[in-house]
């Protein structure tokens, strides 16, 4: 429900109509007295008729407004961070005793749902969250916000499928309409019959000269790396509601309290390479630990 001046839309509508009604009545009384008297009987009947119509229109309008207002009442925002700070492309961040930077980060999320005990309210089958679009106005990563319709309630967490669920991953861009998140051709490996669930790209400075020089890319995909997890938090929806979900890349690269050792060559890249699917699995499974609710 949208509130204006402390009243909801319906109340405002009634108030505005009453105001217009008063003006009309006033005008009739002031400038058309003689005519009003001559046709008093007829006019009163018409007047009552219009009044009834007006009331009916007002009530039906209120019903429509209620239906409209409850749609898209919940706002879910995704944000990329590094150590709690909004992620910026090409910015050097400390990584243990080294320096790291990122230039690409996007991810698919499946079966997004708010959780309330055993109850789930499904928000979306699939979304493609691109924090680093080509045409962003600057190097700051973008926040991506979706609107969903959610019933009032106190929810205890959000459930996210990290990647593309197997049923959807069995399809390809040709199976989807042009405005669907899975239509994005650049995120599909035709050779591997899988979407690229997550892309994280950057560089690390391994020789300690303060300039990043070693490529990092984590392009993770295929059914075995898909996983689902619920992150707990208090999410209240009363008329409207909102939630910010942050994915922190420092946490993504932290395993059991230790940063991933990027001096190890096999830790630097994974790109749909079946021989290194273990790294892809590690990264995707660690997404739940990198998820922070705000």
């Amino acid at each position: 429900m949208i509130l204006r001046n402390g009243k909801n839309d319906c109340e405002n509508f009634h108030a505005e109509n009453q105001y217009l009604f008063n003006i009309r009545t006033s005008n009739i009384n002031k400038s058309n007295v003689s005519k009003f008297n001559i046709h008093k009987h007829t006019s009163m009947k018409n007047f009552a008729f219009f009044l009834l119509l007006f009331a009916a229109a007002s009530f039906s309008s209120c019903k429509d407004n209620d239906d409209t207002d409850i749609k898209d009442n919940f706002s879910l925002t995704f944000r990329a961070t590094y150590d709690g700070e909004l992620l910026e492309k090409y910015k050097n961040y400390p990584y243990g005793d080294k320096v790291i930077l990122f230039d690409k980060f996007n991810t698919y999320l499946s079966d997004i749902a708010l959780v309330n005990g055993a109850t789930e309210v499904k928000l979306s089958d699939i979304e493609w969250v691109n924090f680093t679009p080509d045409l962003a106005p600057n190097d700051k990563t973008v926040e991506v916000t979706y609107k969903y319709t959610v019933p009032d309630g106190n929810y205890t967490g959000i459930k996210l499928g990290y990647g593309v669920s197997p049923d959807l991953n069995a399809k390809s861009p040709a199976d989807f309409p042009t405005d669907h998140p899975l239509y994005v051709e650049s995120e599909y490996w035709s050779g591997w019959k899988s979407y690229i669930f997550t892309k994280v790209q950057g560089e690390v400075d391994l020789n300690g000269d303060g300039v990043t020089e070693t490529n990092l890319f984590y392009h993770c995909g295929s059914d075995p790396v898909y996983n689902v997890a619920t992150t707990n938090g208090n999410i209240a929806v009363a008329g409207t509601g909102s939630l910010v979900v942050e994915f922190d890349l420092k946490k993504l690269f932290t395993f059991n309290g230790q940063l991933l050792d990027l001096t190890v060559t096999t830790n630097q890249t994974t790109s749909h390479d079946a021989s290194n699917i273990a790294l892809g699995q590690m990264v995707m499974e660690n997404f739940k630990n990198a998820t922070v609710l705000k």
């Binding site: 861009p173 040709a174 051709e185 650049s186 599909y188 490996w189 035709s190 050779g191 390479d273």
Partner: peptide
């Protein structure tokens, strides 16, 4: 890996990026 498909991938052989 000739790495071509990362930029020229999928059916139309361009990722449009």
């Amino acid at each position: 890996d000739a790495q071509c498909f990362h930029c020229h991938g999928s059916v139309t052989l361009t990722g449009n990026n």
